[in-house]
Structures are given as C-alpha cells and as structure tokens.
Amino acid sequence: MNQSFQRARSPEHKEVRRRMILDAAERVLERDGFNDASLNAIAQEAGVVKSGLYRYFESREEILLELLVADLQAMVAEFADDVTGPIEVARLGEMMAEGFISHPRLCLLVSRMASVLEHNITGDTIRAIKRRLNACAEETAQTMCRAVPHWQEEEARRGVMMLYVLVSGLYPMANPPAHVRDVLCEVEFRDSAMEFEPTVRFAAQAMLRGIDAMARARVEAG
C-alpha cells in the first residue's frame, strides 16, 4: 500500500486521484464481482488507506455510480454515432439492445441502482448523478427521434425508460447466483431460465414497435 499518498490540492490533481480510484474500482469489480467490490478492496487495489478514499468519494456507492454514468455516457455516444439517419424501428430496437449487451458492467450496475447504489449516499450527490443520467436519457431520446422522425420526444423518452426498466429487472434474472443457476439447469425448471441476449433483443423490438404503433396512430389522427 502506498502510504505516501498525499491529498490533492488542485482541481487537476484531485481529478487524477479520482481517476486512479475509479480505475482501481473497475479492476476490483471485474475481478471480484459486485458483492465483493468493497471500499476496503478498492482502497487496497488503489494503494491507499481507506480513509484516503473519503477525500474524493463519500461512499462505495458513489464510486460505483460514477462507473455506471461513465459506461452509460459511452453507450449513448456510440448509439448517437451509429444513427446517421432514419432507420426501421426493428433495427432501432436491435441497436439499442446491442448497446446494453456490449456493456455488461453497465447492465450489472443498472440492476443494482435502486436497491443498493442509491443508498448510503447524500441527496446532493444523487441529485448530481441523476442530472447526468437525465442528460444521457435526453440525448438518447433525441437520437431515437432522428432515427424515427415521426416520433415525438416524449414517445422516445418513454422508450428509453422502458428499456432501462427492462434491463434492470432482466439482467439479474439472467445472471443468478451459482446455486440458483444449477437448479435452473434441472429439467423441471429449464423453462424458467432466462437468457439475457435473446430476451433483451426480443423485448426491445417489441416495446419500440408498440411505441411506433401509438405514434403512427397519433399521426393518422392528425
């Protein structure tokens, strides 16, 4: 452990320290899993004493929320780059599903947000996090409207929220603990097993087709 770790004095140095801690958290989360990504483990990986982390983050939950936001921002940027003009709704659903599939850590953190990550955190911090998440949702909705020009932004925002809720519930069901997974392999329970990739692809397309049907009905009604 690096006992010479010094408190950053300038905003630039503080950001370097924060990035170092976040990089350590990424490695711990990848190596040890969500439940074992403790503040102690992150501090050890970063080479600092645990008390040093509190100079930059108020809790483990804030650190993991920062990773969630960074992953979501990356996914949103990739989606915006891929949508260069109008596309079929089925293709839009496929693209959005693929975005989540290609960011499994984001899916994991989203699935733990309401039940774990929004606890042990102050109102000011979660307020700042929510603003960044809302900005991501707004950018995604605008991209969806570019892909399907007859959609209104409110319709697109509903689609974003529905996909978020889908992933938050589906991901843990499709990635159960080992002992649950063993039971689901038994013949009696195989029909209860969920596979994330095919299910999220099917559900994303079904939800967006439903929104599109309502949007078309609105347009036809004038």
Rank of each mutant, 00 (worst) to 15 (best):
residue 1 M to Q: 04
residue 2 N to Q: 01
residue 5 F to M: 09
residue 6 Q to P: 06
residue 10 S to V: 01
residue 11 P to H: 06
residue 11 P to C: 08
residue 15 E to K: 10
residue 18 R to Q: 07
residue 28 V to D: 04
residue 30 E to D: 12
residue 31 R to F: 01
residue 34 F to C: 05
residue 39 L to A: 08
residue 39 L to I: 15
residue 40 N to Y: 03
residue 41 A to H: 04
residue 42 I to W: 03
residue 43 A to N: 02
residue 47 G to N: 00
residue 52 G to E: 11
residue 54 Y to E: 02
residue 54 Y to A: 04
residue 60 R to V: 09
residue 61 E to Q: 13
residue 63 I to G: 01
residue 64 L to G: 09
residue 72 L to C: 03
residue 72 L to G: 04
residue 74 A to M: 06
residue 75 M to G: 13
residue 75 M to V: 11
residue 76 V to Q: 05
residue 80 A to G: 14
residue 86 P to C: 07
residue 93 G to T: 10
residue 100 F to E: 02
residue 101 I to S: 08
residue 102 S to Y: 00
residue 104 P to H: 09
residue 108 L to W: 01
residue 108 L to Q: 11
residue 112 R to L: 03
residue 114 A to L: 09
residue 115 S to W: 03
residue 126 I to W: 09
residue 130 K to L: 09
residue 135 A to K: 12
residue 137 A to S: 06
residue 142 Q to A: 04
residue 143 T to V: 12
residue 144 M to V: 15
residue 144 M to Y: 02
residue 146 R to W: 01
residue 149 P to D: 00
residue 152 Q to D: 10
residue 152 Q to L: 14
residue 154 E to Y: 01
residue 154 E to M: 07
residue 159 G to D: 11
residue 160 V to T: 14
residue 171 Y to K: 01
residue 175 N to M: 06
residue 175 N to L: 02
residue 177 P to Q: 07
residue 185 C to H: 12
residue 185 C to Q: 15
residue 186 E to M: 14
residue 187 V to S: 13
residue 188 E to I: 03
residue 188 E to W: 08
residue 191 D to W: 13
residue 193 A to M: 14
residue 194 M to S: 10
residue 203 A to T: 07
residue 203 A to I: 07
residue 205 Q to R: 15
residue 209 R to E: 12
residue 210 G to R: 05
residue 212 D to C: 03
residue 215 A to L: 07
residue 217 A to D: 08
residue 221 A to C: 05
